[in-house]
Amino acid sequence: MDYSIILYTVIALGSVALLLAIILYGVAQKFKVYEDPRIDIVEKILPGANCGGCGFAGCRAFAEAAVKAEDLATIFCPVGGNDCMKNVAEALGKTAAEKEPMVAVIRCSGSPAHRPRTSIYDGAQSCAVMASVYAGDTGCSFGCLGRGDCTLVCDFDAIHMNPETLLPEVIDDKCTACGACVKACPKFIIELRKKGPKNRRIFVSCINKDKGGVARKACKVVCIGCGVCKKACTFDAITIENNLAYIDFNKCKLCRKCVEVCPTNAIHELNFPPKKKVEEIAPAKEPVSNA
């Protein structure tokens, strides 16, 4: 057998490879873009979800902004939370703003049992499309449309439709408060609220701004803006505007008085021990670590 063929092949291919390598190297040198090495460091610290919850187009953009920024007061990664931001700040020699851990809450409880359907929606299964057609398939023109646009945008598998209530439900431990669902909801039902100690939260689960009578006709668990909760609240945390109560989560001390007095059960408490005596719970001083 003629071994020279193998030799020629190796030489020919080898020289082609060498030539290409030189060209590639030259081009790479010529078009080299200087990048701050700290960007890579910061990017590695970040969770890498690329969810856009921080307001930047992905983690890389966030890292670039963090490196460039004077201080990190306005830059925060909701997914990584305080721990992640602490590390980022350390790496950059800056100080991070500490933020209360947040979670998405659904401010509507109008399940079919509470809120009878007034028409059959037959269009595309999308809240955005539905909201552009009419006010909704129930008497309440504010409530959840139940087509699950919020579940589609969640990168963390943290929000799901409950097939019985036809309402979305948030899994606290998975929710990173990136805010994607808040933006996706055409009815503005979802709000980011303080996660609270041991995930305990109290909020008005309704955004209906109709007058009491009209609202009540449409839904049994609607906020009618009666103001009983406002009177019951000793911390001045509840405001009533446009026939709707709102609990300021920075003022709320989770005493649960408002929950008891609400005539329509529109105020929800989450993750409280059932039927125990109301205990004094200290305001959230330290960030919760079990999240």
Binding site: G123, A124, Q125, S126, A128, V129, S132
Partner: peptide
């Protein structure tokens, strides 16, 4: 398929 439903959204 809900073609124009979504196209309307995208157009807006």
């Amino acid at each position: 398929l809900p073609l124009v439903d979504y196209i309307r959204l995208g157009k807006a």
